[in-house]
Nucleic acid binder design. Structure first.
Lengths: 313, 313
DNA sequence: ATAATTATGACAATCCTTGTCACTATTATC
DNA sequence: GATAATAGTGACAAGGATTGTCATAATTAT
């Protein structure tokens, strides 16, 4: 193997391992230790941040930065990466250390001139918008950490009507439409609930013993948690226009089906406690929706309407 | 300069240039042409996709892929890039050739083992959700292209109530809440309007002369276009609960201010044609909002309500 | 035709690379 | 304090790789 090839592979190897010894690499590459030492010095000169310690359990390490070996990206790939990261700028809070803008400028800086030109042209023409919020969610990384390490947290939470302090065991966090949510097992409610991260006034480690929820994560939490709660079937007809309106603002739990003529219907099971929200929602759809069931929803809509008539009458 | 170092720099050089000749590089690196030829062959063997043509105006080219030189990313940077690109998977349509999943796996593949472990742990614990849509928008790249190159397009568009064919000159495209929008100058309406990309039935190049709108882009379009349209002032009081409800679903044109006690108010200028939408929206907020002006909006809410009373009464 | 370009082969001079050996220095562990 | 594991340096000779030069071919736009 030629030296240059070995250097490239060496670069990948030291990236893969966090720690390694000269002897180890010498055997792996089938060259002498002396050669590896010389190679490592050369890598060092090329910018790979190597650090070494002598003595037993000593060895080499790659510091802070990890050098990615020459990755081949197509221009399109580079462009999509750029815009994906660029879209993160809309977020007031992120669960990472948020050095993504640093990453972005590095990426941008190393791109070939004409790819950069293309990006510059596109910069003001494409965007992934997320509503800009004043609200910040400072505890994202703590929550994420707890979810990964299966730890219990004590939170001071302000819900719609009251403020309580209780223990939760986070399952994960996700952002939707600019807000961060945290599905978590609530020891107080004895079930999985979703909390708004910006409504947490404080988050601290708790002494409580964690449950084994490692098999529950963001993708499957609904399947698992939606068993022992009060659900009720919903069925509603949509006009052609109603279909379009619903498409613009769908609810994850309601499944929409369309017919050939453009009309359609909604089916799904909803939480009884969510009925008031669905009531507002369907009122917004006006004549374009006709609710068949549940009757509880119809009743709720009627009472909401008559209250509103009093207000606006 | 050692050969390995030269190869690395050569790799960067051929990335920077799109096209180059052997002689050119030979002079730049101060070696003979023969050496450069040998080096290029070696680069080729290392995976750089080089292509050459003989004859005058011939020369070397780097194909499709651009090799990024060894970029140093910190672990945090790599992680944020990963999740930013990962979030794109929610989009049914993208304006790029959508090789982002390929880019992602490359990126993932080359990362060090423990960064990969960290990502694996986080994968099911963090997400940037965008509502999944069945609707696809196949014309995104054409629209984007037209916006960049300032071209006029003839579109077959289905709006809320009718289907028309007319000329537009796109300003850009953006996605919001899972749907793609295209602000564009409409020759038919003689003003800038925003179109839903999924409602375009066809998009084709038009023969019309393009206007000079190069100074208008996504960031400034509102400032410029909001001059000669029918606007009307809106002012509404929000209760404490109303403030929280509005935060979850804000409208870009309405500015919310809060008081110390948690209550607040909304101010802004709205399009008269949008009044029906605001009516539905404020009905959804129920008792938590009190509209002061415009009276047109109040009237619209009243008529909507009485219609609904007929339906649900 | 001509000039510009890539492409390939041969060869000798030279430069670089490699392994070996000898040695030093540091440090964790017994 | 001895020992073993580790990095680090220097010297040297053998062998291998690299380089420039030259010759020559092939292709193609002008």
């Amino acid at each position: 193997m030629s030296k240059s090839k070995r250097l490239m592979e060496l670069m990948m190897a030291v990236n893969r391992k966090r720690k390694f010894t000269v002897k180890e690499l010498a055997q792996e590459f089938g060259v002498s230790s002396r050669t590896i030492l010389r190679d490592l010095q050369e890598l060092s000169e090329l910018g790979v941040p190597l650090y070494s310690e002598v003595g037993p359990h000593g060895g080499y390490q790659v510091l802070r930065e990890r050098i990615l070996p020459p990755i081949a990206f197509t221009e399109d790939e580079a462009v999509s990466i750029f815009f994906a990261v660029h879209a993160l700028r809309h977020y007031a809070s992120l669960p990472f250390e948020s050095e993504s803008s640093a990453a972005l400028s590095k990426f941008y800086y190393y791109m070939s001139g004409d790819t950069r030109d293309r990006i510059d042209q596109m910069k003001n023409r494409v965007d992934f918008v997320t509503p800009e919020r004043q609200i910040s969610a400072p505890y994202l990384s703590i929550l994420l950490d707890a979810a990964i390490q299966q730890k219990v947290l004590l939170i001071d939470y302000e819900s719609r009507d009251k403020r309580t302090i209780h223990d939760i065991q986070p399952i994960g966090i996700y952002s939707r439409n600019g807000l961060w949510y945290c599905p978590a097992y609530s020891f107080h409610h004895q079930e999985v609930r979703t909390f708004r991260c910006d409504r947490m006034h404080s988050v601290a480690p708790s002494d409580m013993e964690a449950l084994d929820l490692s098999h529950i994560h963001l993708e499957n939490r609904e399947v698992i948690t939606r068993t022992d709660q009060e659900h009720i079937a919903l069925y509603a007809e949509l006009t052609r226009k109603g279909v379009k309106m619903y498409e613009a603002e769908p609810w994850p739990v309601l499944n929409m089906q369309t017919r050939e003529d453009g009309s359609g219907w909604l089916e799904g099971k909803i939480l009884t406690s969510d009925i008031p929200y669905f009531a507002s929602f369907f009122i917004g759809l006006g004549h374009e929706v006709t609710i068949k069931e549940p009757s509880e929803l119809l009743a709720c809509i009627q009472s909401t309407l008559s209250e509103l008539m009093d207000k606006y009458g």
